[in-house]
């Protein structure tokens, strides 16, 4: 018994004095969105691979609320020791202009930006239009009648619609839903007519023929959607905004020591190369990015510029991007 206690004590003193290399205890991963959402699914599927590289458990916790702001605030209130990771989606890049906070991912250190989604326009099967040209013509001919699902100001739908409105003025009715899942269900039930959504959320329904794609919001065609022309064929003016899409990333607080950041970046980069993860993401229509450092910062700034200015020009920003020195795209 005595030996055991001494053993434990020496182990304790050793580990505190020698300061074993990071990580020496479990890491906490804070997921910005609720269980079952796409961010949750992506983070839960990459973490086990990263755990292998790090040698400790990543304890995942969903901390929802305030469009992700609560999780962000929480991570930044913790020590900058790399033991608390923020696992989130694109939303914080809009916090500043939407008045939801004065921080975004540019104020944190990026561990990895895993993947990016591609937005598409989907419509009810019985809709009398099949591509963007026919769709916009139809809206013009029936002002105010068409019901388009939305996920609130700053959500994907609002930004994609703002892009479209920058090219052509449309008069439609916007029906708000809290998330693309419920909105796409409503589309199948006939409560709304058209919905801009991320490809991954719609791909299975499209394959099964329960809804149809009428537009691909990208510069190039997508191999998951053969025969669908990119939106820039109809509206070449959109080229400056694209490619654009929601993303998933992992971040730590500013001030985390360099060697810790390197270790985490290495682990997640390795994890994102795992064939299971790549397969999962591609099947859901996501483009793997697996970037960090300079490349990631460039991506984040680009996303922020495009979205912030679109939102600002569409008239639903609370504060101007200029206030935060966000350059025009």
């Amino acid at each position: 018994m005595k030996k055991t206690i001494i053993g434990a004590l020496t182990a304790l003193t050793l580990s505190t004095t020698a300061l074993a290399a990071f990580p020496e205890k479990d890491i906490q991963g804070i997921i910005q969105w609720g269980a079952g959402g796409s961010t949750d699914t992506v983070m839960r599927s990459i973490s086990p691979h990263a755990e292998k590289a790090l040698g400790v458990d990543i304890v995942l916790t969903n901390k929802t609320g305030g469009v992700g702001a609560i999780a962000m605030k929480y991570v930044n209130s913790k020590d900058d020791d790399g033991y608390t990771l923020l696992m989130g989606a694109e939303n914080p890049q809009m916090y500043k202009v939407l008045g939801l906070g004065d921080m975004d991912y540019n104020d944190m250190i990026t561990i990895n930006i895993l993947a990016r989604g591609t937005p598409v326009f989907v419509a009810r099967n019985d809709a009398p239009y099949n591509n963007m040209q026919e769709f916009t013509d139809f809206v013009k001919a029936h002002p105010g009648e068409l019901k388009i699902g939305s996920t609130g100001n700053g959500g994907l739908t609002s930004i994609v619609m703002a892009m479209l409105q920058s090219q052509i003025s449309l008069d439609y009715t916007s029906i708000p839903y809290n998330g693309d899942g419920p909105a796409l269900t409503a589309l199948q039930g006939g409560a709304i007519d058209v919905m801009p959504a991320v490809l991954g959320a719609t791909i299975e329904q499209i394959k099964a023929g329960r809804m149809k794609v009428i537009g691909l919001v990208d510069k190039e065609a997508n191999k998951l959607l053969p025969g669908v022309a990119p939106i820039t064929d109809t509206f070449p003016g959109l080229k400056s905004y694209l490619p654009w899409g929601p993303f998933f990333g992992i971040f730590v607080k500013q001030g985390t020591p360099d060697d810790v950041v390197k270790k985490l970046q290495g682990a997640f980069q390795q994890a994102a190369f795992h064939p299971d993860f790549i397969d999962l993401m591609q099947k859901r229509g996501f483009t793997i990015l697996n970037i960090s450092g300079e490349e990631a910062n460039y991506f984040l700034s680009g996303y922020r510029s495009t979205s912030s200015w679109l939102v600002h020009e569409a008239g639903f920003s609370k504060r101007s991007p200029e206030e935060f020195n966000i350059p025009r795209p």
Partner: peptide, 10 residues
């Protein structure tokens, strides 16, 4: 967490 890490190491 440190205590648990020590115990599991041990």
């Amino acid at each position: 967490r440190e205590i648990m890490a020590v115990i599991s190491h041990w």
